[in-house]
Nucleic acid binder design. Structure first.
Length: 323
DNA sequence: AATCCATCCTGTATGC
DNA sequence: TGCATACAGGATGGAT
């Protein structure tokens, strides 16, 4: 499922295909995929038509394409100054969203929701398509607002000092050079909840979903129900360090895919699922315990209405755990 | 005020 | 074979 590494793979894949290209027209095939655009389909299309994509930026699992007005772009070419971007096309992949570059001749995907026709560019596909089976994801146009802390962060090369309004409540992710562990730890301790719930809270630390939460907790040898308000600094540090390491590894592998639901912009799957240590391994031996000569089996439990995978030996449940 | 959780969706797998 | 149920889960808004 798309978490930080998968979204970053999409961002990197997308940027060279769409930067500098103009959106010539837009087909909204299923309005449910733009339900977060409150002003409706016509307004959505009107905002995009004629605009030029200046970049692809990410914060947590939110991805957006800052837009430059077509006429402003023309003027900028004349005086050599880049016009300020004030709106962006926002995308969230949700559970099953895909952003695909496709040639015009490629038949519609079964769950094609929105199609952007881009200005022709030599050797590049003509369309950017949003495909989404479960419709948890979506597209919408949002205002860009100033940030006073150096821009949206993420891993973009040169992000504008502006952030999409709907992403301004999202914390920085552990791979962001501006991520502050001290601030994270301070806010973590102030919460009275369980550790995994906190890890999944995008306002505290972003980019982590169910898969990488379980992987980071396993790697740090911490149980998901450990109380946040008592967690030692060293444990919290190891947890963030683990999240960072596992997500960097996943990024190198092109992301995690279990099926064709998550693919990069070319339709290819990542292969990080082969490297998972906890997630999806119910009944299989814990690799770390096995290496130490101990017999232990990964356990699956229902938690927050979804599955959590832990090793009962090296991630012992706390006595006063919090859900 | 902080925390929690039902809800939005559809395709696939499994059970009876 | 067919029908029913469980499951996958990110973000949000309303409830507690």
């Amino acid at each position: 499922m798309p978490e930080l590494p998968e979204v970053e793979v999409v961002r990197r894949g997308l940027v060279s295909w769409v930067r500098g290209r103009t959106i010539e027209s837009v087909d909204v095939l299923d309005p449910r995929s733009i339900r977060r655009h409150a002003l409706g389909v016509e307004d959505f299309i009107g905002n995009l038509q004629g605009a030029t994509v200046s970049d692809v930026v990410r914060r947590g699992k939110f991805l957006w394409l800052p837009l430059v007005d077509g006429s402003a772009h023309q003027q900028a070419a004349g005086n050599g100054q880049a016009p300020p971007s004030r709106v962006a096309l926002m995308a969230h992949l949700g559970m099953s969203g895909q952003l695909l570059m496709q040639d015009a001749g490629v038949p519609d995907e079964k769950h094609l929701k929105v199609r952007l026709h881009l200005s022709p560019s030599a050797g590049m596909p003509g369309q950017l398509r949003f495909v989404d089976q479960r419709i948890f994801g979506g597209l919408f146009v949002t205002a860009l607002v100033p940030t006073d802390d150096g821009g949206p962060g993420g891993l973009a090369e040169s992000p504008l000092p502006l952030i999409a309004g709907e992403a301004s409540h999202i914390a920085r992710d552990p791979l962001d050079p501006a991520f502050s562990f001290d601030r994270f730890y301070q806010r973590l301790r102030a919460r009275k909840t369980g550790l995994k719930r906190a890890l999944l809270d995008q306002g505290l630390v972003s980019g982590i979903g169910n898969i990488y939460a379980d992987e980071a907790l396993w790697r740090a040898r911490l149980h998901y129900a450990r109380p946040t308000d008592k967690l030692r600094r060293a444990d919290a540090f190891r947890l963030i360090d683990s999240a960072r390491a596992v997500m960097l590894d996943a990024l190198d592998a092109g992301g995690t895919s279990f099926d064709s639901l998550y693919v990069n912009v070319n339709g290819a799957s990542g292969y990080f699922d082969r490297s998972l240590n906890a997630y999806g391994r119910e009944g299989e031996p814990c690799k770390r315990c096995t290496a130490a000569g101990i017999h232990a089996t990964i356990r699956r439990e229902q938690f927050m209405n979804r599955s959590s995978y832990t090793c009962p030996v090296c991630q012992p449940r706390p006595r006063n755990g919090r859900w």
